[in-house]
């Protein structure tokens, strides 16, 4: 598994990186309370470029459980809050990227 570390990027840069690197999974880590806004922006831009379905999108960080359904409705495959076991994430990725 290879991880492209994006650091602190804006929405356009995230989408650009994902496209150029042609990754399987986009993982967004957010702790700022702005997860709903950012996720929506990323997904909208992916849709705009017609590539939304090309990627598996995961969100993690300090995400209140009440927001999980909202995020999933937006098109996020899974949401990971505090206390997540990393192996669970890996398994989910392996399961869901089998082509």
């Amino acid at each position: 598994m290879e991880v492209i570390f994006g650091g602190f990027q804006n929405v356009e840069q995230i989408v650009e990186s994902a496209i150029s690197e042609d990754v399987d999974v986009i993982g967004l880590s957010m702790h700022s309370g702005a997860h709903l806004v950012y996720t929506e922006r990323v997904i909208n831009l992916l849709k705009e470029k017609g590539v939304k379905d090309h990627f598996l999108i995961l969100v993690g960080g300090v995400i209140p459980v009440m927001d999980f359904p909202t995020l999933k409705k937006m098109g996020v495959a899974n949401v990971y809050g505090p206390g997540t076991v990393v192996a669970d994430v890996v398994n989910f990725i392996v399961e869901n990227t089998k082509k």
């Binding site: 598994m1 650091g7 990186s17």
Partner: peptide, 15 residues
Amino acid sequence: GAFLGDRVRMTDISL
């Protein structure tokens, strides 16, 4: 596995 970090330095020009 690999952790590819070069891109972080290039966010300036990436767009």
